[in-house]
Computed example of a mutant assay.
Amino acid sequence: MPTSLVRAVDTNLDLMTEMSLFFIISLGVKRGIFSALSKRPSLSRFMDEVRIPNRRLLSRFLATLDRLGMVKTTNDHIELAEFSHNLVVAAERYGALVSDWASVLEEIYKMADYAFITPTHPQILMDFDKDADFWDMRMSTSFSNLYRRAIAEVAEIKPGMSVLDIGCGSVSPSYFGRLVGYNGFYLGLDYSYALLDIARARIAGEALPVVLKEIDATIIRPVNSYDVVIMSFVLEYIQNRKRAIKNALEGLREGGKLVIVDPFRDRFKYVPALEFFEALNKDFVGFPSVSEIEGIVSSLNFKVSVRSPSRSVLLLEKL
């Protein structure tokens, strides 16, 4: 049964993707994109009429509109499609809202506006190393704390456990290190040296059982057997997801749990809108789908049960 924590993660991701949709519409109006599309232009004429220097980003914006069902191509002409969205304002939705992610998303929307000028604009702060302070701020939000608490609850993390966190970032090491306690063990992996430096500074002096390593998720070879492996908001930066999931399952002991958290593209309607903004990070490859992960797991030589405590959480138990 879904708990209040995982339901709250779902609700916030619903609202996050909806807000991204509104930002897409805002960019389309502000940059004259919808006005140009109203004339049913050919692709070449559209690209010429919309005077946006960053043509690659403009093409990606058009592809996003297509994935959202907001445009269609007819006889080599692009035209606006009939599109509507009902925003539901209800207490049961907004009662679970942790609102500090909204200001972060608003900043990324502003970055996208600058990116239409040039992809190297100094106001774009999405690089994990160069802009680690911005990412640390994102990872320190109440929403990030919410999904960490949901992971701990779903995986039943207790003192004395061993935890492997793939794509740990700068905040999770201190959080999960405290949960497993001095008799447990936590290994955090990330390919961003800058985020790991922040994580080390955060746990300095606490004598926590935390080890941090700079490494790519696709080349890890776990030497220990872990009670829990965590992959939260990381698969969207991994090209070879099959190898990463295989490595994660190899690191689990029998009965161990792999927890994956993401706005899965087959469960959240407006994920393409959020993807447009997240792709300002050069390593972003797109959010995974549940069906993709299930297909990967079924192709591997592991006995695994797959459960879904909520739309944004997958729980894989090694049998």
Results as ranks from 00 to 15, higher is better:
R7K: 05
R7S: 07
D10R: 06
N12L: 13
N12E: 15
M16S: 14
M16W: 13
M16C: 11
M19P: 01
L21F: 02
F22S: 10
F23D: 07
R31H: 05
R31Q: 05
G32W: 00
S35I: 03
S35F: 05
A36S: 13
R45P: 03
I52T: 02
N54V: 00
T73C: 11
D76I: 02
E82G: 08
N86W: 10
L87C: 03
R93H: 10
A102W: 07
L105D: 02
E107R: 00
E107M: 02
Y109I: 01
H121V: 00
D127R: 06
F134G: 02
W135T: 04
S142Y: 08
E156V: 01
I157G: 06
P159L: 04
C168H: 11
P173Y: 09
Y175S: 05
Y175F: 15
V180T: 02
G181Y: 00
Y182G: 01
Y186P: 03
L196T: 03
D197W: 10
I203N: 08
G205D: 12
G205C: 11
A207P: 03
A207W: 14
V211M: 14
L212Y: 09
K213S: 03
K213Q: 13
I215M: 12
V223Y: 12
D227R: 07
S232P: 11
L235I: 04
Y237W: 15
I238S: 12
R243W: 07
A248S: 15
E250M: 13
E250P: 05
K257D: 11
V261A: 13
P263D: 09
D266K: 14
D266F: 12
K269I: 08
E275S: 15
F277G: 00
E278T: 06
G286T: 06
F287R: 01
P288W: 10
S291D: 12
I296S: 05
S298E: 15
S299V: 04
V304F: 13
S305T: 08
R307I: 00
P309M: 10
S312N: 10
L314G: 12
L316N: 09
L316I: 07
K318Q: 14
